[in-house]
């Protein structure tokens, strides 16, 4: 029962974190989009130079992308933590032979 509650809490926290990441990235994206596109239009109309920039993104957008990337890694870390919990539980079930309780002999386990 206690484990169930803590798992639900962990899932809720992860959900909130992901939602926060999405909202923050959406807000940052909306904030930089207008000026970024406006400043880039003349560059796109100009004749092609010897070397066009790899990714012509203003400092603001670069900053936003870095923030999004940090959120992505944070979300990945949280999800990996949740996955680890699930893997441990699944391995425990497998070791106890409950995985195929209805099908006969269990696997040798680890």
């Amino acid at each position: 029962m206690g484990a169930d509650v803590s798992r639900r809490r962990a899932l809720a926290a992860a959900g909130l974190l992901l939602l926060g990441a999405l909202l923050a990235s959406g807000w940052l994206e909306a904030r930089v989009q207008e000026p970024a596109q406006a400043s880039l239009k003349p560059a796109a109309d100009a004749p092609p130079g010897p070397d066009k920039p790899a990714a012509a993104r203003p400092a603001k957008e670069q900053m936003a992308v870095n923030v999004i990337l940090a959120w992505v890694w944070l979300s990945i870390a949280v999800l990996l933590g949740l996955l680890r919990m699930r893997v441990r539980e699944a391995d425990r079930v497998h070791r106890m032979g409950l995985h195929r309780a209805g099908e006969g002999s269990p696997g040798p386990g680890h």
Partner: peptide
């Protein structure tokens, strides 16, 4: 050899 069930043990990994 020792083995793991594909679902869910291996897929989660």
């Amino acid at each position: 050899l020792p083995w793991l069930p594909f679902w869910p043990n291996f897929l989660l990994r």
